[in-house]
């Protein structure tokens, strides 16, 4: 086929585009993922019932804020990654500040706590459940985000996949926080952080396969 012919087909009566389509579709995928993650967390493990306990509400809010910051920051960077030529492939990725900040706070709280308390703070009963649940709940949000990103034009597939995993992990952490009763900063840093890192790595590995166009 002649390239001229192709250009004629594509340019004749070309339709105007919707400038907000890109951000709208990605934000819609994030919201859809959040709804599913919350639904899953509430129906399978169920809502935590001890919010009236001392400090429970504080930690509950801390977890939700932690996850929300991850989702918003991750989505903002993802919106740049899906536009070709905005993020240079040679430029290193920005530091994920929310997990770093929580890890720092966790270290402070460990240092200020007596040594015999450390094991209880970091290795509460639910750590395996947390490390397994967050990646599982993240599957649907990840699929939703990947589906939206595939309609854009990511040119750095591993990095875009990693960000999709990071956002999905954040969404899932928010859902899991509704159920999780392990209230300590070291626990959040270690196991929430660890689960989100796992989601990010999985995204980086899957990105080049799933996002190719």
């Amino acid at each position: 086929m002649k390239t001229d012919e192709l250009i004629t087909v594509l340019s004749t009566n070309v339709e105007p585009i919707d400038r907000r389509q890109l951000s709208r579709e990605i934000v819609a995928a994030v919201i859809l993922g959040t709804v599913v993650a919350i639904g899953t967390a509430l129906t399978l493990p169920g809502m935590r019932m001890d919010l009236s306990a001392p400090n429970a509400l504080t930690y509950f809010c801390a977890k939700i804020i932690f996850a929300t910051v991850i989702v918003i920051a991750g989505t903002a960077y993802l919106l740049r990654l899906v536009r070709p030529g905005v993020v240079s492939p040679s430029k290193s990725a920005p530091v994920p500040w929310p997990p770093v900040a929580v890890a720092a706070l966790a270290t402070i709280s460990l240092v200020s706590a007596p040594l015999w308390h450390w094991h209880n703070m970091a290795m509460a009963d639910g750590w395996i459940e947390c490390l397994v649940s967050i990646p599982i709940i993240a599957v649907v949000p990840f699929a939703a985000v990947v589906w939206a990103v595939r309609r854009m034009a990511p040119t750095d597939l591993a990095r875009t996949g990693a960000l999709a995993g990071f956002v999905a992990g954040g969404i899932s952490a928010a859902g899991y926080a509704l159920h999780c009763t392990d209230d300590s900063l070291p626990f959040i840093a270690l196991w929430y952080g660890g689960a989100i890192v796992m989601c990010t790595l999985a995204g980086a590995l899957l990105g080049p396969r799933l996002l190719r166009w």
């Binding site: 594509l10 890109l22 536009r83 070709p84 030529g85």
Partner: peptide
């Protein structure tokens, strides 16, 4: 032709506040 089609089907990923040349270049290189 593959790139011309990609430019067409993904033209909504170009934002008027970014430079155009790096946008095309990133697609062509990809």
């Amino acid at each position: 032709q593959d790139v011309i089609i990609a430019i067409h089907t993904r033209r909504h990923t170009y934002s008027p506040d970014q430079l155009f040349t790096p946008w095309v270049h990133a697609i062509a290189r990809y």
